[in-house]
Design a protein around this nucleic acid. Structure first.
Length: 214
DNA sequence: ACTTTAACTGGATTACATCA
DNA sequence: CTGATGTAATCCAGTTAAAG
């Protein structure tokens, strides 16, 4: 038996398995004329008493869902031929298969959006932390610069001899040597610093993200 | 009461057929 | 041949409601 034959046989077996169920689940069309060219009728709007009588919602079986999922996994779009083939394999109305694919695509899209949202959120949080770290570093460097300028001023005054502190030694912490040439030094990896400094309320680590899914 | 999901609706788009 | 028009199929976003 070649592969095609075995696939066909499997399809027939599945059909046999589900057809009675389908007949039970979905009332068959009256004008099911198989010899007729494929009907191209726009489906009727299904609202009101007739719909209530006919369209009860049915849960698909695990086997049906499994086959649908497998198909969805290989291709999210559903061409007409595949829809019909799947429908007959599953013993479902092609319309049900189409609806299932539509809903499945919507669920998949939602899931993808949620994943994208959470990875962007993580990225945003790390950027906020980095921004705060850099702002803290800027602040401290500015302080150092200001101290260094004061020290410079003091030395100039000392050389002229008109300064009261001409001979006093510069405080070690205020000397230019104290300025870390790398600009990083003690602040390089100090995350604690980040959380003590909140310029203009910009550093709100762990702030609530608006959740679009609520 | 809440969630999941099958089924539905309406609007937009596309492909195809027909006709002037 | 070509453009206009109509129809059917399909998609998506949003909604409804059955069922668990």
């Amino acid at each position: 038996m070649n592969q095609q034959e075995s696939e066909e046989r499997e399809a027939v077996q599945i059909c046999e398995l589900y057809t009675p169920l389908y007949i039970q689940m979905v009332p068959q069309q009256q004008d099911n004329n198989l010899g007729e060219a494929k009907r191209r009728r726009r489906r009727k709007k299904n609202r009101g008493s007739e719909a209530d009588a006919v369209a009860k919602k049915r849960k698909l079986t695990a086997a049906q869902v499994h086959l649908l999922e497998t198909n969805f996994g290989s291709e999210h779009k559903l061409e007409s031929e595949r829809k019909d083939r799947l429908a007959s394999e599953l013993g479902l109305d092609p319309r049900q298969v189409a609806v299932w694919f539509q809903n499945r695509r919507a669920r998949w899209k939602n899931k993808k959006l949620e994943e994208e949202y959470s990875s962007l959120k993580k990225l945003h949080e790390s950027v906020v932390v980095e921004k705060c770290r850099l702002e803290t570093q800027i602040l401290k460097l500015k302080e150092q610069l200001s101290e260094a300028e004061k020290e410079k001023e003091r030395l100039i005054m000392g050389e002229r001899g008109d300064g009261p502190l001409s001979s006093s030694s510069p405080s070690p912490s205020m000397s230019m040597d104290a300025v870390d040439p790398t600009g990083l030094g003690e602040f390089g990896a100090s995350f604690e610093d980040v959380f003590y400094y909140m310029p203009e309320n910009s550093c709100i680590y762990g702030m609530e993200w608006p959740n679009p899914y609520i």
